[in-house]
C-alpha cells in the first residue's frame, strides 16, 4: 500500500510540474457533430495493490499511446502546433507509465495491454479519436486533455468509493487528488490559450482524392 502511494507521487507530481500539466480530454465541437458526453469510466474490479498498479500503468500507457497517435496524425496533416502539444501529452503519460514500472520493479506490466479491460470502451484516461480534426487548434487539444483528466479523476474517486481494499482506496484517493490538480492546471492553461474563432474548421478546398 505504501508502495502504491509512492508510485503515485513519483509518477505524477514531478511530471505535472515539468510540463505544466497539460492533461487530457475535451469536449470540442466540430462543425459537424456535437461531441457526445462520455460516461465516466466505472470502477474496475481491482482487488490487490499489484492489480491496481497494473491497471494504473495500463491507463497511462494507453493514454500515452493514443496521444502519440494523435501527434503522428497531426504531423501527417501538417498541423505541427497541435502535433507538438499531443507529443508533449504523450511524453507525460509515458513517463507516468514508466515510473510505475520502476516503482514496482517490473520489466513490463504483468497485465498485457491486450488483456486490459475497462468498463467503458476505453481506458479512463484515453482520448477519443473521433474528436480530432485536421484544422484543430491547441485550445481544442487542451479541451480533449481536460476531459480526460476529469474522467481520470472521477475514475479514481469512484474506485476509492467502491473498493474493499484499504490500500487500493488510499492509492485511489491520492490519484484522484493528483488528477484533480491536473484538471485545475489545464483549466488555467485553457484560460491563457486563445479561443478558436467560429470558422476555425473552414477549408475552401475540397478533399483530395487518392482512390
Amino acid at each position: 500500500m505504501s508502495t502504491k502511494k509512492s508510485v503515485k507521487k513519483a509518477t505524477k507530481k514531478p511530471v505535472k510540474k515539468a510540463v505544466k500539466r497539460p492533461v487530457k480530454k475535451t469536449v470540442r465541437k466540430t462543425a459537424a457533430a456535437p461531441a457526445p458526453k462520455r460516461a465516466a469510466a466505472k470502477s474496475v474490479p481491482v482487488a490487490s495493490n499489484a492489480e491496481f498498479m497494473a491497471h494504473a500503468y495500463a491507463m497511462e500507457a494507453e493514454a500515452a499511446e493514443r496521444y502519440a497517435e494523435f501527434a503522428d496524425s497531426m504531423e501527417v496533416h501538417n498541423n505541427l502546433e497541435v502535433a507538438e502539444l499531443f507529443r508533449k501529452l504523450a511524453r507525460i503519460e509515458q513517463i507516468h507509465a514508466d515510473q510505475i514500472l520502476d516503482q514496482m520493479g517490473w520489466k513490463h506490466s504483468p497485465l498485457s495491454s491486450v488483456n486490459v479491460r475497462w468498463e467503458g470502451m476505453e481506458g479512463p484516461e484515453t482520448a477519443d479519436p473521433t474528436e480530432l480534426h485536421y484544422l484543430m487548434q491547441p485550445y481544442h487539444a487542451l479541451q480533449i486533455a481536460l476531459l480526460n483528466e476529469k474522467r481520470a479523476r472521477d475514475f479514481f474517486a469512484n474506485l476509492a468509493k467502491v473498493t474493499k481494499d484499504p490500500g487500493v482506496r488510499k492509492g485511489a484517493l491520492e490519484m484522484e487528488e493528483d488528477e484533480a490538480e491536473h484538471v485545475r492546471l489545464i483549466e488555467e492553461w485553457l484560460k491563457r490559450t486563445p479561443k478558436p474563432d467560429a470558422n476555425w474548421h473552414a477549408d475552401q478546398d475540397p478533399p483530395v482524392l487518392s482512390d
Binding site: S73, E75, H77, P129, T130, H133, Y134
Partner: peptide
C-alpha cells in the same frame, strides 16, 4: 509508416 487517414477517422482505432 504513418496513416494518411483524416484525424478522427475510425480506422485508426
Amino acid at each position: 509508416y504513418k496513416p494518411i487517414w483524416c484525424p478522427g477517422c475510425g480506422d485508426y482505432s
